[in-house]
């Protein structure tokens, strides 16, 4: 209701917008239901961004279709900087390679505004295997081939892909079981129903800290600042450098002055020292960068993921 009212007011005020100022409330669209880490980051960013822009910033949840609904809403919105997409990079740089037909092209339909944080995937063990490290788990896996499953938060999620790459590069036979969101599979991991799970560090770090789950390896090139005691797969002899990032995007055609302004403010928001700590607690490493760097990361990531996805045989349709 409130959002609707604001929308109505916003439309009424449509014409008079100065070029370098956002003249209307900003909608920050995300492709997930409330509760996950993208939602949490969006709400933190929205709260800090609003006073800087002098406009309300509303988080709008448009879940469904692997972020397709949210992307579609943003790319077809007016390119004036008042409708923004906050998403992890997965649907922009990974998912397109897994489908033969894609309705969107991130580099054509969207403008990069800012890169916010980097996120690695963690390989988490529950109590089922009794293993406390990657080598112990590999040994257990070989002794129990009938229980060789890993959980992820969904088909096409980064965790799923990391698992596929892991199986291919390590030669281990381990099959994927998709859950809907991290809450569901964490319950099964904790309950000893499935032995391992791969998801964003954020989803398991609190369980790791309290000892309920054990993250034995991370997927990135370097150790995550959130889990400095956990080795990377690379250190463990499994060649891997997979991570994602969260970024903010605007519809293609948004004036560059507006994009620059939003990028500047977002970099300042993420760079605040107290937020740095909050992001690290969420398992995310702050990596703020403006429009140009974000666009470069988008392009290079898109090209980098293509062979990885294809070699992994990761096809969804």
């Amino acid at each position: 209701m409130l959002r609707l009212a604001i929308l109505v007011i916003a439309f009424a005020a449509l014409p008079a917008v100065a070029q370098e100022k956002i003249g209307k409330p900003v909608r920050l669209v995300i492709g997930f239901a409330p509760g996950g880490s993208v939602d949490l980051v969006a709400r933190i960013v929205a709260e800090r961004l609003a006073p800087r822009l002098g406009q309300p910033v509303l988080v709008e949840n448009r879940p469904g279709g692997f972020v397709r609904v949210a992307i579609d809403a943003v790319r077809s919105a007016a390119p004036d900087g008042t409708t923004l997409l906050l998403t992890s990079s997965t649907p922009l740089v990974v998912t397109p390679h897994a489908y033969a037909k894609m309705p969107y092209d991130a580099q054509r339909d969207l403008v990069s505004v800012a890169r916010l944080v980097n996120g690695q995937q963690g390989f988490a063990l529950g109590p089922m295997s009794g293993a406390r490290s990657w080598p112990e788990y590999v040994a257990w896996l070989k002794a129990n081939p009938d229980k060789a499953f890993f959980a992820s938060s969904g088909v096409g999620s980064m965790g799923h892909l990391v698992g596929v790459v892991l199986a291919n590069t390590s030669g281990l036979r381990i099959e994927h079981v998709a859950y809907k969101g991290s809450g569901q599979y964490n319950a099964e991991l904790l309950g000893g129903q499935v032995s391992a799970g791969i998801s964003g560090i954020a989803d398991a770090s609190e369980f790791h800290r309290t000892g309920k789950l054990r993250i034995v390896a991370t997927s990135g090139a370097e150790r995550s600042r959130a889990l400095p005691d956990v080795p990377t797969f690379k250190e463990l002899g499994v060649p891997m450098d997979l991570s994602l990032w969260y970024g903010v995007f605007a519809p293609a055609g948004t004036p560059s002055a507006i994009v620059e302004l939003l990028g500047r403010e977002l970099v300042a928001v993420v760079g605040a020292p107290d937020l740095t700590e909050r992001f690290i607690n969420l398992g995310l490493d702050p990596a703020a960068a403006g429009p140009k760097a974000a666009a470069e990361t988008l392009a290079s990531d898109y090209a980098r993921w293509r062979p990885i996805v294809q070699q992994a045989g990761f096809k969804l349709d």
């Binding site: 279709g65 397709r68 609904v69 309705p103 349709d317």
Partner: peptide, 22 residues
């Protein structure tokens, strides 16, 4: 209806993003 099924396969979506979302 939609993409959010265990296979990630588009069902009854007719290329429409809203339908893809279920």
């Amino acid at each position: 209806v939609g993409l959010d099924n265990p296979a990630g396969f588009p069902r009854f979506t007719f290329g429409n993003a809203e339908l893809a979302g279920g």
